[in-house]
Design a protein around this nucleic acid. Structure first.
Length: 846
RNA sequence: GCCCUCGUGGUGAAAUUGGUAGACACAAAGGACUUAAAAUCCUUGCCCUUUUGGGAGUGCCAGUUCGAGUCUGGCCGAGGGCACCA
């Protein structure tokens, strides 16, 4: 028998699928739809193992759903705007567009080699004018709905990438791409009013039953709802400031009030701008604010004003007003009422400046004399030293009660606050979607008139300039609208804008007049299964959820709000890391294992330091190139391996041995195929039922596991099938039902190793339309079952016995068992636990 | 500090949801074939008994139950998210 030539076979079937347009989306109104989407890639150059895993998972699902009889939409596109293209182009004198399109070509070919069932006729690229022209319309639409606005604000400035970052893109005070420490800078920016939907975005999470709880929790925390009260404090002093507003979640601790702290950007600060000490203080704040140590240590510093705030519940009490470094301007009102006894941060501040620390809550297990000493007590308890609030249970009852009192006396009102801030979308970079805005001579912003859309990104421009290249494009920047001289907005949109609606575009990739066609999205949306990395838990997934709401807002009345019905977050692909003597990273192919030790291949077999297994990344050199693997082992083998070792939601270890064994498994399946082909005949044999039963069981198992994303178990099931069949075939029986059952097995395998199964099916002359095999529930039920016999809860024997046996008969049968008899001897049976066809537990008096 | 998730052989893991723990694979050891090696195939895999068998066993300690990897409480450990959010 000829060796299985994966190269020939895989090329053959890929060509076949392309020629017959097998994966072209078809709409048959008698069938249900299924929209399967994986997060589209950034065209960085080549695909990596993470893509292989992500898209294999999606492909198995799509192929399964297709066989199940769904109209499947399984598209692919490119998240093609973004900085790497611009940087690569600038550094190598290239055009970002050419660089990107070349990468797209390469990666598309690589994905095709994986044998993915993608409808390539729907391919989209976000950097194409065809795509971003619709985005510009959306922008203007949102502007009309007042969901887009422009304001001057402090922003996160990335000094390396020379652009602004959204809050979600700042990780530990550093830019998510460059890793540079983010600076504060005041700029005029465009914002999407995502915070308008704060409550709706929280509420929507409840309906997303098929989202990982982890992601939902992360989003909930990010939106950060808190319930409390807004209080207006009267202020006395020699400045024209009479009132200062605060937000607090603990108005019930007002009698512990000992200072009022303001953000350095609070409007009161305008009276201090000629105060040298204040400016010095402000300077200090912005310095400590950005260093990591400062954040970790969290040292609290303040600047005392000559103002005094009055306690609204006890106007005789006056407390000092400070500016403090820990008060954020964009949360609440940029002002905090300080209660040191019951808030650790306030406590630290009070200690530093010797402010009063007055205990107003005692824990339930302490008496009235309880005093906060070493640290704040933020826990529950009973209010004390609080005049008419004394005795209330904190925090539930006391907070509500205090808010009622404050509202009655017109001193404050109930308020819900959200941590979520509006999404800043301006980026000072060239390679992005132009913002369709122009400014008149007074600086007023005007939408670009419809007749002048789209705003095309100029080509062949000089990238080696400081700042945004678009800024120095005079001929592009200067424009005349209605006879008036104007200048274009030179910022481009954050690329996350592009990816927050691409799933809609896939429904209507060729609609020219608008971003999508209403009928198409009514049919296809929502995405039934979305698959991607958990790193987008907040960014992309929150933005997309916002976008659906924003585009629907006020007039469209979509029947769905949530773009992604189910979400699956797959784990990463990991590999050991290697370093040489000088701590330089080594790639796996520079290293080999000799006698159990890792050594450098080239460098005199020098000893290699083996580090922990980590997510594959270029910087650590622990990458395995998918193209190389596909070349050497074939797409089916890679698909098989990438699913085999770990559950898809967990990280998987790359293993060369594992990869080789997947390759060998396909070879072994081919040999098995040859033997089965030889034995397919029409002769009936009594033994027939056996294989039928087995295959039925396996179909049931594989179906069960497919429905639950237990893809690693499916691979184990495939090995089980092989192990069974190879022994079965050896028994030399010619079986009537072998062919039928074998075809069902091939169909079960086809989502995972489609090239191989297509070849085998063709080889045995099967040319009917493929569909998912059904299993016969009757056949699943054996007439004999293994029943566990326990004595006092311990397994003592297993009886293989006729199904449906009742307790009394089973007990009699059990007594006949030698081993059981031994235990029963002369002892009284106290009780019998009986689970039909599963177990009998005989309890003895000891 | 707060929130979430997870602890099963040498390793990655199964266990259809409270009923035979370790399916399937990797690695290892022994054996067969071979002049030899590779490849392939078979066997083994905690403790005690020669086998039939018996004992221990799913991070640790308790509890519920006839029965717990699975449920409850406490502890220990690992990973992830948020972090001056008032």
């Amino acid at each position: 028998m000829e060796r299985y030539n994966f190269k020939k076979v895989e090329e053959k079937w890929q060509a076949h699928w392309a020629k017959h347009k097998t994966f072209l989306t078809k709409i048959d109104k008698n069938k249900k739809k299924f929209y399967c989407l994986e997060m589209f890639p950034y065209p960085s150059g080549k695909i990596h193992m993470g893509h292989v895993r992500n898209y294999t998972i999606g492909d198995v699902l799509s192929r399964y759903k297709t066989l199940k009889g769904f109209n499947v939409l399984h598209p692919m596109g490119w998240d093609a705007f973004g900085m790497p293209a611009e940087n690569a182009a600038r550094d190598n004198n290239l055009d970002p567009k050419e660089w990107t399109n070349k990468n797209i070509e390469t990666m598309k070919n690589q994905l095709k080699k994986l044998g993915l069932s993608i409808d390539w006729s729907r391919e989209i690229s976000t950097c194409s004018e065809e795509y971003y022209k619709h985005q510009q319309k959306f922008f203007l639409e949102l502007l009309e709905k007042k969901l887009v606005y422009r304001k001057e604000n402090y922003v996160n400035w990335d000094p390396v990438d020379e652009t602004v970052l959204a809050n979600e893109q700042v990780i530990d005070g550093k830019g998510w791409r460059s890793g540079a420490t983010v600076e504060r800078k005041k700029l005029n920016q465009w914002f999407f009013n995502i915070s308008k939907f704060s409550q709706d975005l929280i509420d929507g999470l409840d309906g997303l039953e098929n989202w990982p709880n982890k992601v939902k929790t992360m989003q909930k925390n990010w939106i950060g709802k808190s319930f409390g009260c807004e209080i207006e404090f009267d202020v006395e002093g020699d400045l024209p400031v009479k009132k200062i507003k605060c937000f607090t979640t603990r108005p019930d601790t007002l009698f512990g009030f000992s200072f009022l702290a303001l953000s350095i950007d609070h409007e009161v600060s305008k009276y201090f701008l000629d105060n040298k000490d204040f400016l010095k203080f402000k300077d200090e704040c912005s310095k400590t604010g950005t260093t990591e140590e400062a954040i970790a240590v969290g040292e609290k510093i303040g600047f005392k004003t000559n103002l005094e705030a009055l306690n609204p519940l006890n106007p005789k009490q006056k407390v000092p007003v400070y500016f403090a470094n820990f008060v954020l301007m964009d949360y609440g009102f940029g002002a905090v009422f300080g209660c040191p006894a019951h808030d650790q941060r306030d406590y630290d501040f009070a200690k530093k400046y010797n402010l009063e620390i007055k205990t107003v809550v005692r824990p339930f297990d302490q008496d009235e004399n309880f005093q906060v000493l070493q640290e704040a007590y933020p826990g529950p308890g009973i209010l004390v030293n609080s005049d008419f609030l004394n005795g209330l249970e904190a925090p539930e009852k006391s907070v509500l009660e205090t808010i009622n009192i404050l509202e009655e006396r017109n001193l404050g009102k109930k308020k819900v606050n959200y941590r979520l801030k509006d999404w800043g979308v301006s980026r000072q970079r060239y390679w992005g979607c132009p913002i369709p805005i122009a400014y008149d001579e007074s600086g007023k912003a005007h939408p670009i008139p419809k007749s002048m859309l789209p705003v095309k990104l100029p080509e062949n421009i000089e990238l080696k300039v400081k700042g945004n290249p678009l800024d120095s494009q005079k001929d592009w920047k200067e424009i005349i609208i209605d006879g008036k001289k104007m200048t274009r907005e030179t910022d481009t949109l954050d690329t996350f804008v592009c990816s927050s609606w691409y799933y809609l575009r896939f429904c209507s990739p060729n609609e020219n007049s608008y971003g999508f066609n209403r009928e198409d999205i009514d049919y296809w949306m929502p995405v039934d299964q979305y698959i991607g990395g958990v790193e987008h838990a907040i960014l992309h997934l929150l933005y997309s959820r916002f976008f659906m709401r924003a585009i629907d807002h006020e007039n469209k009345n979509f029947n769905i709000k949530e773009p992604f019905q189910s979400l699956f977050t797959q784990g990463m692909v990991c590999h050991e890391t290697y370093k040489d003597e000088k701590n330089n990273w080594l790639s796996p192919d520079e290293v080999e294992k000799i006698n159990g030790k890792f050594v450098e291949k080239k460098n005199n077999n020098k000893f290699v330091k083996v580090g922990p297994s980590e997510s594959m990344s270029k910087s650590k050199k622990n990458v395995i190139d998918p193209e190389f693997i596909i070349e050497n082992y074939g797409a089916d083998a890679v698909r098989l391996f990438i699913l085999s070792d770990s559950p898809p939601e967990k990280d998987v270890q790359w293993s060369d041995q594992g990869m080789v064994s997947s390759y060998k498994f396909i070879q072994k399946l081919w040999i098995l195929h040859g033997e089965i082909k030889n034995k397919i005949s029409d002769k009936y044999n009594e033994d027939d039922k056996k294989i039928e039963k087995f295959v039925n069981q396996m179909i049931a198992k594989i179906t069960y596991n497919l429905e639950r994303f237990n893809y690693n178990v499916i691979i184990a099931n495939m090995y089980e099938v092989y192990n069974y069949l190879i022994n079965y075939i050896k028994s030399e029986r010619n079986l009537k039902n072998l062919k039928k059952n074998y075809i069902q097995i091939l169909l079960c395998f086809s989502p995972v190793i489609p090239h191989f199964t297509s070849e085998c099916l063709e080889d045995i002359g099967y040319n009917e339309e493929l569909s998912w095999p059904k299993f016969d529930k009757l056949l699943l039920k054996d007439e004999r079952v293994n029943i566990v016999v326990q004595i006092n809860g311990k397994k003592r024997s297993i009886l293989n016995i006729k199904k449906g046996i009742e307790q009394a008969d089973l007990l009699e049968e059990s007594k006949k068992d030698q081993n059981i008899f031994k235990y029963l001897d002369k002892k009284k049976i106290n009780k019998v636990i009986f689970i039909k066809d599963k177990l009998i537990n005989i309890l003895l008096n000891d």
